[in-house]
Design a protein around this nucleic acid. Structure first.
Lengths: 103, 103
DNA sequence: GCTTACTGTAAGTCATCACTTACCAATAGT
DNA sequence: ACTATTGGTAAGTGATGACTTACAGTAAGC
């Protein structure tokens, strides 16, 4: 399951901060690492993980690489959560009616 | 941020499997651990992490404890993702119009 | 009361992983 | 061509965390 990669990618605080840094749009590695308390290579490694999880994508422009959030990755996660949500809801209402019958 | 706990809780494969085991409704620790390749204490520890993340809750009944998914925890996560999603979308459309203007 | 079933906690071990420094590759500007 | 900027990769290290076995506690059934 590719969801595994997504969750473990977002588990690390630094990596999640980097990811959040892309909320507002495309940024380069140096821009992103300037906002983080770790070294630039560390940020590079984090971006690699995020990319492998399908959460970000890179677009090289000159010597710089602009990273952006990959919307399909986010959509996948939302879909997963939604299916989960409906399952939980129906299990819950089933439980309710079952308890009602027992009363 | 409590989201941190949620993401790191769902990052571990075994823990996510346990969590998924609760999709269909309440289960005891022994029931859950029967479906997992790890020992029962390991499952107990995972459940503790899930509970601290606000993702599950326990209801003691006799010597058994029935674990269920805490719907508020899921809702929180969905809300977070939704805010993220709208940010990303608006950043994307802003990028589009900007590129359009430059052409 | 005593045993049995169910669960959480303690202590210790091993692997994973986030981070650093050092290095290399490629494009841009002068 | 040469230098500077940008960024990915390699190797090594330390800490975190997932797991095991052993133990302790509590409710239920006989």
């Amino acid at each position: 399951m590719t969801n595994q990669l997504v969750f473990s990618a977002l588990a690390d605080p630094t990596r999640r901060n980097i990811f959040e840094g892309l909320r507002s749009g495309a940024k380069t590695v140096t821009e992103l690492s300037a906002a983080q308390p770790v070294s630039r290579p560390a940020v590079s490694q984090h971006l690699k993980v995020l990319q492998e999880a399908g959460l970000v994508q890179a677009e090289p422009r000159g010597t710089r690489r602009f990273y952006t959030i990959r919307r399909e990755g986010l959509a996948e996660l939302r879909t997963y959560l939604d299916s989960f949500w409906s399952d939980v809801l129906s299990a819950y209402s089933a439980e309710i009616t079952r308890n009602f019958g027992e009363k």
